[in-house]
Design a protein around this nucleic acid. Structure first.
Length: 459
RNA sequence: GGCGACGUAGCCAAGCGGUUAAGGCGGGGGUCUGCAAAACCCCUAUGCAGCGGUUCGAAUCCGCUCGUCGCCUCCA
């Protein structure tokens, strides 16, 4: 398949070298609940991984947790809890939320705090080779030693300095030099090192973990677009300085999630967290919302968009119901599969892949309505949908929905209503239906009798 | 100030020089139904921000104008 490589700005054919594809995705700093921006990011990389696996590649997927940094320390202090406890809590929350979105877990989730020896070794090599120097504040990377610095973000040191929004630190040789090791201030968690007690800088952990667990060059290194600079740029500088060049063959970045035209950020206070969203929308609706635009385009979050996606998800769910007779069908699912693959092969074009799925759903519905067996088509729809991470699970049982199971009572009312209808007492029958609708139970009369489902999710 | 992205139907969104401009949501009409819902069928952009240019041919390439947004600082 072809993927856009941020490094070249071009679509490039992904050619696996060994028996597997290595995928490193930058993870979160676990100091707060995950928000829709994270959801968007990890849904996209989940779809990428699932597709690679669908195409027969073995994927080795590593994603880190930055469990020690300024934000962690500040939040822990604010709450009066140890940093490690804060990390443990939000890492658990991260998994809960991502699981609820049907995002496959990475094979390994290294923690920065557990990689300190390896990080120190890497810093030592950088110092030894003249790429790093010590100041009273810690150890810094010497960006001017990297002639290619800026190659990922396509900018130059001069260009960045022109912006002049860089804080001046007298002790640094160059304003763009960045910390590899931060000297501990009193009361901060710290580790011993040849440069005094301190903790790792942000960027060094990813270089250390990625090379340790996957080895350079990585086939794919991904992350949010806001990580291109400085995080990923610095990862490249550090890693390639010690000979791990190229650090990654293909850099994959997606568009930014925005909220009503603005960037969503902690400072603007317009965060929407995943837990809250999952109470109102199904995992499939979130998937559809994210994947119905191309991953490299910015996406604007909106409630109306989610509502529309929930309807769309419901449409696919309906078509994917494995009912009806099995048997031969004239439905040509191969052509839909071909469209799906062609779209996904071309830089993960999920909107077009979804279009193929919706067209398949339409044909399934039409043939099912005509009494034809559609089990083969349904099988293909479910298989391809699951490549995108769709669950097809009924929307009626959202995560965190603690409504008691009332199906017995509803069944009783449905039976009663059926009897009323048989007796042509339509006013009473409609009354039951209306009252149930008010309570969030939708009845549908079909040839095989009356079925019901809970509405509730996207109300 | 530097770098970059985008502007396609009421809304979201594909399209990467050449058949009738995907798909979803919404809306309109119809079939089915006691009615409704769901489902199905049909319709919903002679036009792709505007103006020039290149080309036999442009939503797609180039230039300019207008508009929106992002990165350059912690952030997926």
């Amino acid at each position: 398949m072809r993927l856009t490589n941020t490094l070249s700005g071009q679509k490039e054919e992904l050619v696996p070298r060994g028996d597997s594809v290595t995928l490193y995705v930058c993870g979160v700093t676990p100091y707060d609940d995950v928000h829709v921006g994270h959801a968007m990011s990890y849904i996209i990389f989940d779809a990428l991984r699932r597709y690679l696996e669908h195409r027969g590649h073995k994927v080795r997927h590593v994603q880190n947790f930055t469990d020690i940094d300024d934000k962690m320390i500040a939040r822990a202090a604010q709450r009066g809890v140890p940093v490690a406890d804060l990390a443990r809590h939000y890492i658990a929350a991260y998994f809960q939320d991502m699981d609820s979105l049907n995002i496959q877990r990475a094979h390994l989730y290294p923690l920065a705090t557990e990689e300190v020896p390896h990080i120190l070794e890497l810093i030592g090599r950088l110092v030894q080779k003249g790429y790093a120097y010590q100041t009273p504040d810690g150890v810094y990377f010497r960006v001017q030693r990297s002639p290619e610095y800026g190659k990922l973000s396509h900018r130059t040191l001069e260009g960045m300095m022109a912006g002049a929004r860089v804080k001046v630190d007298e002790a640094k040789e160059h304003p763009m030099d960045f910390a590899l090791w931060k000297a501990a201030k009193p009361g901060e968690p710290s580790w011993e090192s040849p440069w005094g007690p301190g903790r790792p800088g942000w960027h060094i952990e990813c270089s250390a973990m990625a090379t340790k667990y996957l080895g350079a060059p990585l086939d794919i290194h991904g992350g949010g677009p806001d990580l291109i600079f400085p995080h990923h740029e610095n990862e490249i500088a550090q890693s390639e300085a010690v000979g791990a060049a190229p650090f990654a063959r293909c850099w994959v970045h997606h568009g930014m999630l925005q909220i009503s035209g603005e960037k969503m950020s902690k400072s603007l206070g317009n965060m929407v967290n995943v837990k809250e969203l999952r109470r109102r929308f199904s995992a499939d609706a979130l998937r559809l919302f994210v994947l119905s635009s191309h991953y490299r385009s910015p996406l604007t979050f909106s409630d109306e968009g989610l509502v529309a996606s929930e309807r769309g998800a419901e449409r696919l769910r309906h078509a994917a119901q494995p009912d009806g007779p099995a048997g031969f069908s004239r439905l040509d699912s191969a052509s839909y599969e071909a469209r799906f693959h062609e779209a996904m092969d071309d830089d993960l074009n999920t909107p077009q892949a979804l279009a193929a799925l919706f067209d398949l759903a339409r044909e399934i519905n039409a043939r099912r309505a005509a009494g034809e067996p559609v089990d083969l088509g349904v099988g293909v729809l479910r298989a391809l949908g699951s490549v995108l991470g769709m669950t097809f699970a009924p929307a009626s049982a959202p995560e965190g929905d603690h409504r008691p199971d009332v199906s017995g009572f509803i069944a009783l009312l449905v039976t009663t209503r059926t009897e009323l209808r048989a007796a042509k007492q339509f006013a009473a029958a409609d009354g039951i239906r209306d009252r149930l609708a008010e309570l969030g139970v939708v009845l549908e009369d079909g040839p095989q009798g009356t079925s019901w489902k809970l509405k509730g999710i996207a109300e």
